[in-house]
Structure formats: C-alpha cells, structure tokens
Amino acid sequence: MKAHAAEGRLALQRCTACGNIQYPPRELCGVCLADTLEWRVTDDEPGEVLASTVLHHSHEPAFNGKLPIHVGLIRLDAGPTAIGFLTEACSAGTRVRVTAKLDYRGRAVLSAALAISKEVS
C-alpha cells in the first residue's frame, strides 16, 4: 500500500478467493481467511462521510502546529470504512473522493475531498 501511496495511488486489498475488499490491510482475508490477496489500485475511491471530528489536541508534537485537524470516518463505495483526513469540513452524508499519499514519516495516509471539487477541476 505504501509503494502505491508513494505514487499517489490508493491500494485496497482484494481477496482473490472470495472477492472481499478490505481495509485496514491484513496478511489474510478477514472474511474467508485465505491469504491470496491482491492490490486493487485506483487513483481515488468514492465514498461517503459517516462521521467527522475536529481535533484540537494531539499526542504528537508534529501535529501541534497543524491543529485544528479535520478527520472523518468514510465509507468507501468499495465496501470498507476508513479513517482519513478531511481536506475541508465535510459533515456526515457528504460525498467525497479518497486519495492516498505518504505522510511526513513515510506512512500511507488517506485524505478525503469533496467529490464535486474533483469534477469541477
């Protein structure tokens, strides 16, 4: 997932045995327990915000200069739910497009932007 995120692409795991698409990544399928997983790579995934929060406190100094931070729980149309940064204040029910990139520590992170903003741009 990291390697794909480095190229700005979002990779979700797909089980070749049962078709389950899952996130967070695991070493086997959370449904049928097969370990025949492949990456399903896209530029972005459409989804819907289920809940959101605005962080005013962080346990890591690296985030302290960036507060407040908007974060949401997003249900991807592909199936799984994912926690991701919200690039703007999106309330529940908002349609978004979710992308992946590497963060300041080289971790793959997801960001959700209003679906409409992509169509406009």
Binding site: H59, E60, F63, K66, I83, F85, R105
Partner: peptide
C-alpha cells in the same frame, strides 16, 4: 490507520 491522522 488511526494514529497517523493527528494522533488524537
């Protein structure tokens, strides 16, 4: 999948 999002 949670901590990187602001470490809240």
């Amino acid at each position: 999948c949670v901590w990187p999002y602001g470490a809240g």
